[in-house]
Amino acid sequence: MRKTFAAAVAACTVALVAPAGVAETVDPGFSRVCVIEYNVDQIPALAAGLHADDILYHSGDRADAVALWKKEQDTLRAGLEDNGWGTLKDIDKDSLWPVEDHTASSVIAEDLGSSDTGAPTTLDTPFSAGEVAYFKSAASYTTQRFQDCGREVNRPVPAAPSSLDLALAPGKIAGIVVALLAVLGAGAAFAASAGLIPGVALPF
């Protein structure tokens, strides 16, 4: 579900300062749209934040969603200038998320309350709760950068979890391991009960 950003982030306008003794006026045709300046270290988070909805609730599988994220990173890298900085312009303000704190625990709590709000849950994504928290944190970070609107604010960049390099989400890997252990345990129990393992017998 797309999170809409409050109207408070309307484009910044710059007033023209009139000479002394003349009333100050604002030329409606002269305005400055807020932009985000970025360097290479900020690219993963910005790519995740600008496309959080499309990545989290991708119609394909996990590999497709991660590939989309990496593709958007490549697009931002291509925008870097010789000085190592790029500028994001024409940002879709309606795609920005509210600024909130996100952790794996808060994501799980949101899942528990999603039946009341109708919002998508972690089960609707190919990612774990911790990975979902990263993409949501990146979305909040991106919104904050847009709100800064040219001000130099030192904002910590969310760090992408290394698990995003895995083919499966950590939770699904754990589930597979548990299932395999259950199958192996059942097989061992059957073999022992059938006397197929010398010296091992199950009490009945």
Score class of each variant (00 low, 15 high):
Met1Asn: 09
Arg2Tyr: 10
Lys3Pro: 03
Lys3Asn: 12
Thr4Tyr: 14
Ala7Gly: 06
Ala8Met: 09
Ala8Arg: 14
Ala15Met: 11
Ala15Tyr: 05
Leu16Ala: 09
Ala20Leu: 14
Ala20Gly: 08
Val26Asp: 07
Asp27Pro: 01
Pro28Ser: 07
Gly29Trp: 12
Phe30Asn: 05
Ser31Tyr: 11
Ser31Thr: 15
Arg32Asp: 09
Arg32Met: 12
Arg32Gly: 01
Asn39Glu: 14
Asn39Cys: 15
Val40Met: 05
Gln42Asn: 01
Ala45Lys: 00
Ala45Gly: 02
Leu46Asp: 01
Leu46Tyr: 00
Ala47Ile: 04
Ala47Tyr: 08
Ala48Leu: 06
Gly49Asn: 06
Gly49Ile: 04
Leu50Glu: 07
Ala52Pro: 00
Asp53Ile: 03
Ile55Ser: 09
Ile55Met: 07
Leu56Val: 11
Tyr57Gln: 02
Gly60Ile: 08
Asp61Val: 07
Arg62Gln: 04
Asp64Ala: 15
Ala65His: 10
Ala65Arg: 11
Leu68Phe: 11
Trp69Ile: 04
Gln73Val: 02
Gln73Phe: 06
Asp74Trp: 02
Asp74Cys: 03
Thr75His: 09
Leu76Trp: 04
Ala78Phe: 05
Gly79Val: 00
Gly86Met: 10
Gly86Asp: 10
Thr87Ser: 12
Ile91His: 03
Asp92Phe: 04
Asp92Tyr: 03
Ser95Lys: 13
Trp97Lys: 09
Asp101Trp: 07
Ser106Asp: 06
Ser106Ile: 13
Ile108Met: 11
Ala109Trp: 06
Asp111Lys: 10
Leu112Ala: 14
Gly113Met: 10
Ser114Trp: 06
Ser115Glu: 15
Ser115Ile: 12
Ser115Arg: 12
Ser115Lys: 12
Ala119Asn: 13
Pro126Ala: 02
Ser128Thr: 07
Ala129Trp: 08
Ala129Ile: 08
Glu131Trp: 12
Ala133Asn: 10
Ala133Met: 11
Tyr141Pro: 03
Tyr141Ser: 00
Tyr141Asn: 00
Thr142Asn: 04
Thr142Tyr: 02
Thr143Met: 01
Gln144Asp: 03
Arg145Met: 14
Gln147Ser: 04
Cys149His: 03
Cys149Asp: 04
Asn154Trp: 03
Arg155Gly: 00
Arg155Phe: 02
Pro158Ala: 00
Pro158Cys: 01
Ala160Pro: 01
Ala160Lys: 15
Pro161Arg: 10
Pro161Asp: 11
Ser162Gly: 04
Ser163Ala: 14
Ser163Asp: 08
Asp165Asn: 12
Ala169Ser: 15
Pro170Ile: 05
Gly171Phe: 01
Ala174Leu: 05
Ile176Trp: 11
Val177Asp: 12
Leu181Glu: 09
Gly185Pro: 02
Ala191Tyr: 03
Ser193Gln: 15
Ser193Asp: 08
Ala194Pro: 01
Leu196Phe: 08
Pro198Glu: 08
Gly199Gln: 13
Ala201Glu: 15
Pro203Phe: 13
Phe204Arg: 13
Phe204Asp: 13
